[in-house]
Design a protein around this nucleic acid. Sequence first.
RNA 1: GGGCCCGUAGCUCAAUGGUCAGAGCAGAGCGCUCAUAACGCUUUGGUUGCAGGUUCGAGUCCUGCCGGGCCUACCA
Length: 572
Amino acid sequence: MARILITSALPYINGIKHLGNLVGSQLPADLYARYMRARGHEVMFICATDEHGTPAEIAAQKAGKPVAEYCAEMHQVQADIARRFGLSFDHFGRSSSDRNRVLTQHLARRLGENGLIEVVTEKQVYSIADGRFLPDRYIEGTCPNCGYERARGDQCEECTKQLDPTDLINPRSAISGSTDLEVRETKHLFLRQSRLRDRLDAWIDSQSGWPVLTTSIAKKWLHDGDGLQDRGITRDLDWGIPAQFPGAPWEGMEGKVFYVWFDAPIEYIGATAEWADAHGLDDAAWERWWRTDKGADDVRYVQFMGKDNVPFHTLSFPATLIGSEEPWKLVDYIKSFNYLNYDGGQFSTSQGRGVFMDQALELLPADYWRWWLLSHAPENSDSEFTWENFQASVNKDLADVLGNFVSRVTKFCRSKFGESVPEGGAWSDTERALVDDLESRVRAYERLMEAMEVRKAAQELRAIWVAGNEYLQSAAPWAAFKTDPERAAAIIRLSLNLIRLYAVLSAPFIPFASARMLAAMGSTDDAWPQDLEAALTVLKPGHAFTVPDVLFAKIADDQRADWQARFAGRRG
RNA sequence: GGGCCCGUAGCUCAAUGGUCAGAGCAGAGCGCUCAUAACGCUUUGGUUGCAGGUUCGAGUCCUGCCGGGCCUACCA
């Protein structure tokens, strides 16, 4: 048994996430966590809301609530939706937790003691009306290059020219529209990542088998131009983890907080500590996942994230941990995803474009979405959600191939033998051929799941379902029943066992339907099949089962058209 | 501007430089009648974006071009 630490990129607090966010980190992480648990490994699956930063403050302002209250509410909303999607976090924490504050301040102090933090004075734009410094993106104005009137302080979206906020003509606050701006001096802590470049470079070189998407981004940051740049890790904000605390080796940090990207990944550790607290366990319980001097040396740590998050996980966060000179567990494998597009464009939180997690659950049960998203996960390139494709895939795979298999087997048995596993008859070559076929398919499925080849694993699982229908076609119990009822009984006995097997194998993808299948078979045996022949004789003659209601209802054309129209514009 | 990724069947996607570029869906034909008008079998469909090059051999490597995307360090 191995010990596997799994983290999903933290969803930002300022709203409900869309399907593109879901498929890029939380959902594949859940798939992997469920699979590894099913294989008997010890799993710690961690996620949390990422609650700091300017967007959270602005979202709270818009909602007319204090930011702490807003975050607490949104955390509950996100936790509830995650639960309804079947995301099986061992703990869903908050980056605003006490645990994260203590850890973040601790790591910052260690970095400071190791000479890796310096105080830098810089000039930033301050908005008097808003009472805050403005990040570059929150300053709008006319582009000096092309004259576009809504250029942002970091870049003009119209002509793509890189800008400095002071380049803008008629600059104004993107928050309030106020033009009452001034440039003020402010001091910030900088993490001297440049000093860690060679160690980070060597660390990345020592990792094998990382996706191109992952290493190419890291390498570019390490080697482009002057190499890895030092990075500001504090901000002039009210909401966040204070950058001033007893023992801090810096002066002049009063009223400043750590930059959200400094404290957010530390919350992976913080949330594990929160998990220990929630279960009444001591520090040793979480430290054995994170401290290689306290038992984490045999942990395999896998991170899941969208491609936009990669630099922070390959460079910033490791720089924090390595620079502390403490034995923290570093990531072993990063699984990164491209983007899921929506009907020819991007999903967009800010524009409300696409389908959001709460809306998805209003339309259909979580398993429909889980199946489609995972079987179409954007692993190699951006992929595309269309309603036609969603309808076709879900109807065919879930309703026709799997759902109908369960239906035809259980209903045939009920009408010919009653609602218990029939006895009599014996396996023939047909059954042995099926077992051989499943043996190789299940092993292939295991290899793909271990390699986190999400799409291919889904394909293999589907092929395993199809094998059941092929078997029924060749064994033809409806024909056998007329001349040799015992032969039909043997076929159906195996088929009922196939349903139980499918429930176990499919659970990482479609946990809710799997639970229903297992319940219908009257079984609690969800052990992973080590030996297929044994796994297909678990349900013995005389064992009672029930015919489940339709497992997956098909999506009708008019439903699809309706949803398509309803989700064509912005979220209302 | 710079870096990187992608472009393969009508659609969604596969193919360590090595048989005839493969699956699923959609389409066509046949079979089956247990089942959610479901299932099974067979089958049509390709100048691998374009133009060159390297190689015994290129979807894969190189150069250029066309198209799409991501990042570019203060959105997260």
